[in-house]
Design a protein around this nucleic acid. Structure first.
Length: 219
DNA sequence: CACCAGGCAAGTA
DNA sequence: TACTTGCATGGT
């Protein structure tokens, strides 16, 4: 069975079991970008608290985040953890948009995807996963987001090596599936959901949608 | 009490 | 290049 067929089959299995995931949970491009930074190594529920706090203080805008002093921003996003680090990272990203794109998010997102990715990666605090989340879920660009869940599902099912890099996993998806943003969007969300529910430290392989493969080998 | 969660950068050898 | 460590809250 080729990896290409397996990835398509994985999508079909997960999609028919769980239905549309409607990611990313955000009301604007800016909110996607903010959430992408806040969720770094952090439970999404904690991120929601921080975003709600920003929203209630009317700070969920480029100007809002740009104008507020760093330490005040840090206190507001406290529930998301690593708040001093993340406050700086939010500032780095927003300042970049404000200064280089005259606060025009549309102009920023409407560039060539590879240039856009390079620019995001040049911002301190934005690594590959955060950049790709912003590109896919914020900009609607067809790029696959790899995360710890993706690695866990693939490695446990013998679909990748234990030492596979971010880039290798990303290529695995992008070279073997149609480069369709809505497909990438949905599949990534489905992988996260499946890993959270079944492919955990103490896996529930009996009820996993991928059980029929009979290839799961939990660590 | 320990451990984990939709990473990343900086330091060390 | 390949590890290791700091960052931090809130839920289980």
């Amino acid at each position: 069975m080729s990896i290409r067929i397996e990835l398509i089959e994985m999508f079909e299995l997960l999609s028919s079991r769980f239905g549309p995931q409607r990611w990313w949970p955000a009301e604007s491009q800016l909110e996607v970008m903010v959430g992408a930074i806040l969720t770094q190594n952090t439970n999404w529920k904690n991120v929601e608290k921080a975003i709600k706090a920003l929203s209630e203080k009317k700070l969920l805008s480029l100007k809002g985040i740009n104008d507020i002093p760093l330490h005040e921003l840090a206190v507001i996003i406290k529930p998301a953890g690593y708040y001093n680090i993340k406050a700086g990272r939010l500032k780095n990203l927003i300042t970049f948009i404000v200064e280089r794109y005259e606060s025009d998010l549309k102009k920023f997102f409407s560039q060539d995807i590879s240039r856009l990715r390079e620019e995001l990666l040049s911002i301190k605090g934005i690594g590959p996963e955060t950049a790709d989340s912003i590109l896919l879920y914020g900009g609607g660009h067809p790029i696959f987001v790899v995360d710890a869940y993706t690695f866990r599902i693939l490695s446990r099912h013998g679909m990748c090596d234990e030492s596979a890099s971010y880039h290798e996993l990303q290529e695995l998806f992008m070279d073997n599936l149609p480069r369709d943003a809505s497909l990438f969007n949905e599949l990534h969300a489905l992988i996260v959901r499946t890993a959270k529910n079944y492919c955990t430290k103490t896996p529930d392989c009996a009820n996993c949608p991928l059980a029929d493969w009979g290839r799961c080998r939990p660590a």
